[in-house]
């Protein structure tokens, strides 16, 4: 995608706002003063060394983790203990996990229709048609009646993406979606993600796939020790990292 193409889909509407967010696991200060805004149609890639708090950060966005200080606003709704708001936000925010987390006792189709039927109260037939559309989009329509255990890793992750899309989310969160995959399957998942980006989906991806970051990201964020150290457009970010920790990190991952 060209720079122009990338910025085209971005609107001024604020999707996610994090202001001065802090989080502790017990005594351990895991997120420190996180300030981050994501606009509709924007695509953010987060990278950083393992244990730096990337997963914790994006899991705070749909309240899989609770933050203790600061505010997180998703689509104008602030995340507090209010269960109604949490549900509402989770409906609008899709998430894709490193280990897929497909439901092993349901077929791929049932995985996809579960939430539309039980959360969106959609008739079964409609849900199935919707699911079939997304399964086609991720190129596994023929796997619909199989169980997750019968699919390859790449197919499972694509099924998981389809499952999330069936809720028609406004934002998608990806937590290292390709790092549990064999090398030959990484591309098939990344291709799907690039296509999603082309369609204008707002995305936050934790990933170390730098090629992917260059292709789709509006911004790359580098985290270390629970802080956002540096954020920039991908060209700048890779060409001229300012912080020495960013430089060190980039030199390490680009070597391999």
């Amino acid at each position: 995608m060209s720079a122009q193409e990338k910025s085209m889909s971005v609107s001024d509407e604020m999707m996610i706002e994090m202001n001065g967010v802090h989080k502790w696991y017990g005594q351990f200060h895991v997120l420190k003063n996180i300030n981050l805004t994501v606009k509709r149609g924007e695509r953010i890639v987060i990278c950083g060394p393992s244990g730096s708090g990337k997963s914790t950060l994006i899991r705070c966005i749909n309240r899989l983790e609770e933050h203790q200080q600061g505010e997180i606003i998703v689509e104008g709704t602030e995340l507090t203990g209010n269960l109604k708001h949490i549900e509402q936000i989770r409906r609008e925010v899709g998430m894709v996990f490193q280990h897929f987390n497909l439901f092993p006792h349901l077929t791929v189709m049932e995985n996809c229709t579960l939430a539309p039927i039980w959360v969106r109260h959609m008739p079964k037939q409609e849900a199935e048609e919707l699911a079939m559309n997304y399964l086609r989009q991720v190129k596994i329509p023929e796997q619909a009646e199989k169980f997750p255990g019968q699919l390859s890793g790449g197919q499972q992750q694509r099924a998981a993406i389809a499952r999330s899309l069936c809720m028609r989310p406004k934002v998608m969160l990806f937590d290292e979606p390709t790092s549990a995959l064999d090398p030959e399957m990484i591309k098939e998942v990344l291709d799907i993600m690039i296509e999603l980006a082309r369609d204008g989906m707002t995305m936050i991806c934790v990933t170390h796939e730098m090629g992917f970051a260059k292709t789709v990201a509006n911004r790359v964020i580098f985290m270390d020790g629970g802080e956002i150290i540096e954020q920039n457009e991908p060209e700048e970010f890779f060409a001229n990292p300012k912080n020495e920790r960013t430089q060190l990190f980039l030199s390490q991952i680009l070597q391999h």
Binding site: R90, M95, F97, N101, F103, V119, A160
Partner: peptide, 16 residues
């Protein structure tokens, strides 16, 4: 735990 998290992130309530 991933199963619960996946269900939650789809918007399913705890009892469902």
């Amino acid at each position: 735990r991933g199963q619960t998290e996946a269900a939650y992130s789809l918007g399913l309530r705890p009892n469902w």
